[in-house]
């Protein structure tokens, strides 16, 4: 099990041991997120909302609001957040991160959230399918790479063969799910 998953488990056990959960701006969920690389910045969030104001997805959607999602984490709505589709709306354009005056990266925080969601079985189907393709073929587009494209490549003087393979992926595939040991 990787360290992140181990830390997550410890916190989850502690959390489960509590009979009644209190929401506070420094919830155990926020603490859990803060253990990820760059996740520690969540403690700096002052909920100003510049992320939601900047976000191109929020502009086009009426449910994705980065500030609100961070608020849910801060007050410890762990299950709601992990089960939700919303953390998967972030496209990591990182405009919010560039504009955040407090040095928070919502993109990194949501990445940590997605990691926890996956380890607890809440990943969207499209995501699982894509991961499965990469961990089988070694890359995303083996199926899309047809004879026609090989011909077009040749016509442009490019190598027909792309030499991609799954040799390396075969070696790391297990680690993706089991962590180190």
């Amino acid at each position: 099990m990787c360290n992140f998953a181990r830390a997550a488990l410890v916190i989850k056990e502690k959390k489960d041991a509590m009979t009644r959960e209190l929401h506070s701006p420094s919830s155990s969920f926020a603490l859990e997120i803060s253990l990820f690389p760059n996740g520690e910045d969540i403690k700096k969030c002052i909920q100003c909302g510049i992320c939601s104001a900047t976000c191109p997805v929020a502009f086009a959607s009426n449910i994705f609001r980065p500030r609100k999602l961070i608020q849910w984490i801060l007050i410890g709505k762990r299950e709601e957040v992990l089960k939700s589709d919303i953390p998967w709306f972030c496209m990591t354009c990182r405009t919010c991160e560039e504009r955040c005056q407090e040095g928070v990266s919502p993109a990194e925080i949501f990445q940590a959230v997605r990691h926890l969601a996956i380890s607890e079985g809440y990943a969207p189907e499209a995501f699982k399918k894509m991961v499965d393709i990469i961990l089988t073929d070694g890359w995303m587009l083996k199926d899309a790479f047809s004879d026609f494209i090989e011909d077009d490549r040749e016509a442009l003087g490019l190598d027909r063969d792309l030499h991609w393979n799954n040799e390396f992926v075969k070696m790391v595939k297990k680690k993706y799910f089991d962590g180190e040991e």
């Binding site: 992140f4 990820f36 990591t92 890359w139 993706y176 180190e180």
Partner: peptide, 18 residues
Amino acid sequence: PNETCCAPFWMQSLDITT
């Protein structure tokens, strides 16, 4: 030689170290 997938951000959600 034999480039592998760069494991972009959504793959990183699965496991960042790997």
